[in-house]
Write a protein that binds this DNA or RNA. Structure first.
Lengths: 191, 191
DNA sequence: TATATACTTGAGTGATCACTCAAGAAAGAC
DNA sequence: GTCTTTCTTGAGTGATCACTCAAGTATATA
């Protein structure tokens, strides 16, 4: 006596929610927005996800996971140094993305003052990302592409900070983000 | 037949509102928050400022104006190059500030997707700030402290982007922002 | 002291917030 | 077909949102 199955594709809904939250932020996205875009009535929404925050958490997790996967795939194709040099250009040229700025950074900035759990999660995910960068810097150093006196963790911290600034700047119409991206890549060549 | 005068100090209230908005953001600050902190009942609040957005606009204006003034005062004391090198450390070490991240950037990121007027204002003020940075780079170049092949406007764009990233990173507990600040300053010495 | 003027007060406005829940519809098991 | 189980539906919940306004109060002039 198996009952009916849901009509929606849960994974696709999470991806769609991620895009909405990414663009509009946490407070900027109402349940009505989500119900309209995901085509879910309130009852179905809460049966599927439990709460707005629970869906946001899933969306954040998905966002970070895909970011890490893209970076690792890039490093497999180009090698660590070239991946680090290409990443700045790629993140601001991603045409399908709902926003240039980093969703983790936007979430962190918006919710830190409220001591919201999602800010903590966003911070943890940024740390994971930083660790990925550090790995790549370490590999590039072991390959002899980066001088041995540099600390990979410090390089990763600075690099991530630069990327956050770049991606926020890329939202501005009076800034040529490609120039910034090129300058960040050039900095890596000088290490 | 002159009537009574208001009991509040309008300038002090704007500065106080700026700190609250800076820390909590636009959506994160309710009228109840403002009424409680500024000790104004709703009627007085609306008589004094007109709306929440109008007060936010005044707070943004004040924030940017004081930022420009502090930078120019710094340049008068240290000269353009040393001012640009000192600024990163100063912005993250300002102990009285309600937040490390830039209020203009937070406002821009939060309200851009809503096409809110305040996002436009924040963007304009960031452009003004960028022009100040460009002036200092130009002066440093004319003084011979920066090689002549560099474009001051491009340097200013990159510098502002770096500062935005630095100030957001400074909110994180797992990041040593002083290291980033030192690295940004070191980059200027290499120009 | 009497009056005109403006500030202060706080209950109250409709709108929107995230969220609930009971009733109806659909699909596999028998 | 009938039953059981789950999904879908949408009106409705109390809370909070930004904001209003009429009544009360304080002050400077006359």
């Amino acid at each position: 006596m198996m009952p009916r199955k849901p009509e929606y594709d849960r994974d696709a809904l999470i991806a769609q929610a991620r895009d909405i939250f990414w663009r509009q932020g946490w407070a900027g996205t109402s349940l009505k927005d989500l119900e309209r875009e995901l085509k879910l009535k309130p009852g179905s929404f809460y049966a599927a996800f439990g709460s707005k925050d629970a869906l946001y958490a899933l969306a954040l997790e998905r966002y970070a996971q895909e970011g890490v996967m893209r970076l690792k795939a890039l490093a497999d194709r180009l090698g660590p140094l070239e991946a680090l040099k290409a990443q700045p250009r790629l993140v601001i040229e991603a045409s399908g993305a709902p926003a240039k700025a980093c969703m983790l950074a936007k979430t962190y900035a918006e919710l830190l003052a409220r001591d919201h759990e999602l800010a903590g999660q966003a911070g943890d995910l940024m740390s994971e990302m930083k660790a990925c960068f550090a790995d790549l810097f370490r590999q590039a150093q072991e390959a002899g592409d980066i001088a041995p006196e540099h600390d990979p963790n410090r390089l990763a911290t600075r690099y991530q900070s630069d990327l956050l600034g770049l991606r926020l700047s890329a939202e501005r119409s009076d800034v040529d983000a490609r120039e910034i991206a090129a300058d960040i890549a050039a900095d890596i060549d000088r290490l």
